[in-house]
Simulated scan of single mutants.
Amino acid sequence: MSGLLTPTAAARALSFRLKGSLGKAVLLLHGMTGAPGEMKFLAKRLHRRGFSVAAPLLAGHGTDEKALLASDWRDWLGSAREAFAALQADHDEVYVAGICVGGALGLALAAEEPAVAGAAVYSMTYRYDGWNMRRWYSAVTPLAKPFAGLPLLRRISFVEPYPFGLKDERLREGMAATQGAVIPGALDRVPLGAMHEMHRLADHIDRVGRDVTQPALILHARDDDMSHPRNAERLGKVLGGPVDLRLLDDCYHMIHVDKQRDLVGDITADFFGAPPRAGEARAGASADA
Rank of each mutant, 00 (worst) to 15 (best):
A9D: 15
A10V: 09
A11E: 15
S15G: 13
R17I: 03
V26A: 08
L27K: 01
F41S: 11
F41E: 15
L46N: 12
R49G: 01
A59R: 06
H61V: 12
D64E: 04
E65I: 07
K66Y: 02
K66D: 13
W73L: 04
D75N: 11
R81F: 03
E93N: 02
C100S: 15
V101L: 14
A104F: 13
G106I: 11
L107F: 09
E113G: 06
A117E: 03
G130N: 13
W131E: 15
R135H: 14
G149R: 11
R154V: 02
I156G: 00
V159G: 02
D168E: 06
L171N: 03
L171M: 06
R172V: 03
A176M: 07
G185N: 06
R189S: 12
V190D: 00
P191N: 01
L192D: 05
G193W: 04
A194Y: 01
A202S: 06
L219I: 09
S227Q: 08
P229R: 04
V243C: 05
L247R: 02
L247S: 04
C251N: 08
Y252W: 12
H253T: 03
R261M: 04
G265S: 07
A269N: 04
E280R: 12
E280I: 04
R282M: 13
A283G: 15
A287W: 15
